[in-house]
Design a protein around this nucleic acid. Sequence first.
RNA 1: GGAGUCGGCCGGACAGUCGCGUCGCGCGCAAGCGCAUCGAGGAAAGUCCGGGCUCCAUAGGGCAAGGUGCCAGGUAACGCCUGGGCAGCGCGAGCUGACGGCCAGUGCAACAGAGAGCAGACCGCCGAACGGCACCCUCGGGUGCGCGUGGUAAGGGUGAAAGGGUGCGGUAAGAGCGCACCGCGUGCGGGGCUAACGCCGCAUGGCACGGUAAACCCCACCUGGAGCAAGACCGAAUAGGGGAACGAUAACGCGGCCCGCGUUGUUCCCGGGUAGGUUGCUGGAGCCUGGCGGUGACGCCAGGCCGAGAGGAAUGACUGUCGCGCCGCAAGGCGUACAGAACCCGGCUUACAGGCCGACUCCGCCU
RNA 2: UGGGAGAUCGUCUAACGGUAGGACAACGGACUCUGACUCCGUUUAUCUAGGUUCGAAUCCUAGUCUCCCAG
Length: 132
Amino acid sequence: MPAAGLPREARLRRAGDFAALRQASGRLGGRCFSVRYRVNDLGHPRLGLAISKRVSKRAVDRNRIKRLVRESFRRARLELPPVDLMVMAREQACGLPGPELLAELQLLWKKLRSVKVEATLKPDDPTGTIVR
RNA sequence: GGAGUCGGCCGGACAGUCGCGUCGCGCGCAAGCGCAUCGAGGAAAGUCCGGGCUCCAUAGGGCAAGGUGCCAGGUAACGCCUGGGCAGCGCGAGCUGACGGCCAGUGCAACAGAGAGCAGACCGCCGAACGGCACCCUCGGGUGCGCGUGGUAAGGGUGAAAGGGUGCGGUAAGAGCGCACCGCGUGCGGGGCUAACGCCGCAUGGCACGGUAAACCCCACCUGGAGCAAGACCGAAUAGGGGAACGAUAACGCGGCCCGCGUUGUUCCCGGGUAGGUUGCUGGAGCCUGGCGGUGACGCCAGGCCGAGAGGAAUGACUGUCGCGCCGCAAGGCGUACAGAACCCGGCUUACAGGCCGACUCCGCCU
RNA sequence: UGGGAGAUCGUCUAACGGUAGGACAACGGACUCUGACUCCGUUUAUCUAGGUUCGAAUCCUAGUCUCCCAG
């Protein structure tokens, strides 16, 4: 059984990576989250989180959201295209129970996959890589 | 049985699957893999105080600025804690209190009120003293009026606050004017942890010394500044700096020209330092148990233990069983607080479902 | 994470410890055939809870919220 682990390489860890995502990337929106994505050349997806204090003032709530997103990403990781992701939470995500948030994330991963398929068909798409 | 006060403690438990971080061991050139270990709190929070630690500054002392403020003790230190005093609240157990000094100085008190600071007389009360008017008379004076100069602060009234209280005497009316008691001030002695205090005793003073210092201020004591994004080490790419050697006597600029000076070349060396990395980073004023000293905070001694260390930031997700609370006849359903470490400690403050233990107080009933 | 400021009508702002004032806005009225302008009037506030004081927007303490700085 292939372990759906979440090693450190699957995380965004540089300020530069986040800045690049802010500069040139595609975006997707949900009710509680918005995602920015950008193709990388590592062969696997990487996750970054941005949960601001606007979402909730309490650190407990913010940590809970982060952990839920990580858990969902961990499970979906092997089926995702090789992109850098930044998941940002909205204020509405604060009060919702865990299963609902997980369901919405599932939906987002699904969308991401289909968008990525389109992008591979058109290499000149602006959401594509400009690494080189 | 009911109501309440104080102190201390817990704040879900167990099992399974997947996942994450740290430490250790083994394998591997390495990337990594495998096995094991540990992995949020009583407030981790607010950042309101106090320390450790690090860097910078610094002879000593004073000033300024800020803080603290009954007394004694505890402590590394504190604005914290303990004990005591005083004041207020409560039937009580107890609780609360920035609680030094307005006889060093300066200021403030709107409105009301006669008067608000070494006070004052509006309504009153009085008619003793001086004057006035009226009457009587034995011509010395007497009586009356309350008109003027006055006396007074009992009573009324204003105000947050009006210069001891009650009673008796006293008086024209009154007043510590005198006296008794109470209160207050001062001094001495005793008590009290050499204290705060004013508990006791004695002597003495007729008696304010009004309020406000979380008003300026005075007195006593304390404080150098920044903060782990402190600080230390390693250190690319690119750009730039310093030095040496070589080469050229070349080109350009300064200069009328030569010498000279500056820039341009190659090689080598050097330090500063950005991204980034490593470290600081968790064994400590530590925890548990027992003994001893102390009213207590706390201290001393002995034995045992190691209990998070991330870095775009781990401690999560799902499932089952059992607790606990609420709803329901039942099956069952719903809920299970406040809240998440970021250098580390000591406090304070604030948030918190529910529950446990101990000590004590008041009321009712029974024996 | 650390450091530092502030909070007054719906909005922008004043106020030695002594009745919280002004402008804009809102509402009502007057003027007008109607509207605008103008004039008159009315309503509305000291972030919260304690304390000091006779008296607190002001002084003190605690809390809540907002903003700024340090990468």
